[in-house]
């Protein structure tokens, strides 16, 4: 009797323990599966959000480029034409005038008009999407720096190391806009007098460094302005890495690293 009873108890212990252990294992598996499903769902959501953000940014950039393009055409076709006409009229006045003093003034005005026409042409070109896409990045940067030098408030050095490789027109345009925005920030906020742009090509990447000798700023304490946010967004658009180094009183260095691999096929 005792023997049978103890057997029953042993079965109860073994069976009960097995059930408890089984429940424990089931709980662990359920938690792992639940977390994994959650993770998958979250990752999918992230990808969708990222795609949506990229598409939105792309649309914004396209709108911006269209605006730049219209502005460029307007400057070239309208204001450019008016200035050319004014220069022509000045030439007619100069020819018909016999007063030496007036001639001198007309000649100076013609020179000023020449400068205005040239500047306008440069501005128009930098805004013209098709023009930027056609030219290589070096030429576009050269033009931008030349405009800065002409203001006589800035000196600028531009160096290229390594063998340049092909960058797709769309990426080139965005890269150029990033550099343009950086230079714009330097002109507006840095209080700099000297700008250095250094482009280094290696086999599979391009490193660009834009350094100024301005006031610098505390990265931790300064909130991103619209210009810097634009640079970050554009940088993400072309899958480049963007970094900014600055301390108060020591100037600012902005670095952009663009990988080549995406463009290899396009070449």
């Amino acid at each position: 009797m005792h023997h049978q009873q103890s057997n029953e108890i042993a079965i109860a212990i073994l069976g009960g323990s097995a059930i408890f252990i089984f429940l424990g294992i089931t709980l662990i598996f359920l938690i792992i599966i639940y977390r994994r499903k959650q993770q998958e769902y979250f990752n999918q959501k992230l990808i969708l959000e990222e795609n949506f953000r990229k598409e939105l940014l792309q649309a914004q950039l396209e709108t911006q480029e269209q605006t730049f393009h219209s502005l460029s055409q307007e400057l070239h076709d309208n204001i450019g034409q008016v200035l050319s006409l004014a220069k022509l009229n000045m030439s007619v006045i100069e020819m018909n005038s016999i007063d030496t003093e007036s001639n001198e003034m007309v000649s100076q005005t013609k020179n000023l008009l020449n400068i205005a026409i040239n500047d306008l042409r440069d501005i128009s070109k930098t805004l013209n999407t098709e023009y930027v896409k056609e030219k290589d990045i070096k030429e576009s940067i050269d033009r931008e720096l030349a405009m800065l030098r002409r203001t006589r408030k800035f000196s600028a050095d531009f160096t290229i190391n390594g063998t340049p490789f092909f960058i797709k027109a769309e990426r080139r345009l965005i890269l150029y806009r990033i550099i343009q925005e950086s230079l714009n920030n330097i002109v507006k906020h840095a209080g700099a007098t000297h700008i250095v742009i250094d482009m280094s090509y290696t086999d599979n990447r391009l490193d660009i460094k834009i350094t100024d000798n301005g006031n610098g700023f505390d990265i931790e304490k300064t909130r991103d302005g619209i210009g810097l946010m634009n640079i970050k967004q554009r940088s993400a658009m072309i899958d480049s890495k963007f970094n900014i180094e600055s301390k108060p009183g020591t100037g600012t260095t902005l670095s952009i690293t663009l990988t080549r691999d995406i463009d290899i096929n396009a070449e």
Binding site: A12, I13, G16, S17, F20, I21, G24, I25, I28
Partner: peptide
């Protein structure tokens, strides 16, 4: 969760 419930009985 495996040890403690498993040793109750």
């Amino acid at each position: 969760i495996l040890y403690y419930p498993g040793t109750i009985l």
